[in-house]
């Protein structure tokens, strides 16, 4: 670094306030006797002022640029937003409707209601050539369910229909445990005679419902719903299954 450069550096340090007191005094002494140095100091000072003016101009320009960018983004968003807002509005309406339906279904679903809305009493059909004076059948048709149970107990070798009617009689007299036992006997795969099995399954489902065993009811109705060959397949609808699922949730899987 030559002497001129050294002087310039000292002058810059002097202006920047980076000199010690002694160094500053030394520079001031040199300055007082050197016009060229005074001129350089003056120009350096002016150069610093110019940089400060430039800095302010740059800051204002930068802020303005940010504002214009933000405005441009806002305009661009305002073009996109109406469509997005419409979409969100319809989605919200749909969500609200779905939520309302779900809440309504959840609140209105109960074992009793499902039973009431879907249960159809069993109708006994008499096979051709069969004795029309069968006591169990006659008592069942007159809704004398206590007598049906008594008749069933008195029968030494009941057939599958006798079991079904007795199970129905137990169900109607709210003796669900006995009804379930008899229905299960008909459903049991070990039973070589599978007549009335579909009837037993269907009505076992309702017995479970009445007995507040919604998970078991759901399971058995699901079996019927998924089997198109089942005698009662058409009676178990999607909505019935949906409400059974809700009921199972409400009953915590009981």
């Amino acid at each position: 670094m030559d002497r001129n450069e050294e002087i310039t550096e000292k002058l810059i340090q002097y202006l920047d306030g980076e000199l010690s007191d002694n160094e500053r005094k030394a520079v001031e002494e040199l300055l007082s006797a050197d016009e060229a140095m005074q001129k350089e100091l003056h120009n350096l000072q002016l150069a610093q002022e110019a940089v400060r003016a430039y800095g302010l101009k740059s800051q204002v320009a930068s802020v303005r640029k940010q504002m214009l960018q933000a405005e441009a983004e806002a305009v661009s968003k305002s073009k996109v937003y109406p469509f997005a807002l419409h979409l969100m509005k319809y989605a919200a309406i749909l969500m609200f409707a779905l939520l309302s339906v779900t809440i309504f279904m959840y609140a209105s679903t109960s074992s009793a209601r499902l039973y009431k809305e879907n249960y159809q009493p069993y109708k006994v059909s008499v096979a051709r050539g069969e004795n029309p004076n069968n006591a169990i059948v006659n008592d069942f048709n007159t809704a004398n369910y206590s007598q049906v149970i008594a008749d069933f107990k008195a029968t030494s070798s009941p057939n599958n229909r006798d079991y079904l009617l007795a199970a129905q009689a137990y169900q109607q007299t709210h003796q669900y445990g006995d009804a379930i036992t008899l229905y299960n006997r008909l459903i049991n795969p070990g039973n070589p005679d599978n007549s009335f099995r579909d009837d037993a399954e269907y009505y076992l489902g309702f017995t479970y419902l009445e007995n507040h065993q919604s998970a078991k009811a759901k399971s058995i109705f699901e079996k019927i719903y998924t089997n198109p060959d089942h005698l009662y397949h058409d009676k178990v609808t999607f909505w019935m299954m949906l409400r059974l699922k809700i009921l199972a949730i409400k009953d915590h899987g009981k």
């Binding site: 310039t8 550096e9 810059i12 001129k39 350089e40 120009n43 350096l44 002016l46 150069a47 610093q48 110019a50 940089v51």
Partner: peptide, 13 residues
């Protein structure tokens, strides 16, 4: 920094 400021000073000078 020294060189930059010096350049500007020279332009003014």
């Amino acid at each position: 920094k020294y060189k930059c400021l010096k350049s500007l000073e020279q332009m003014l000078d």
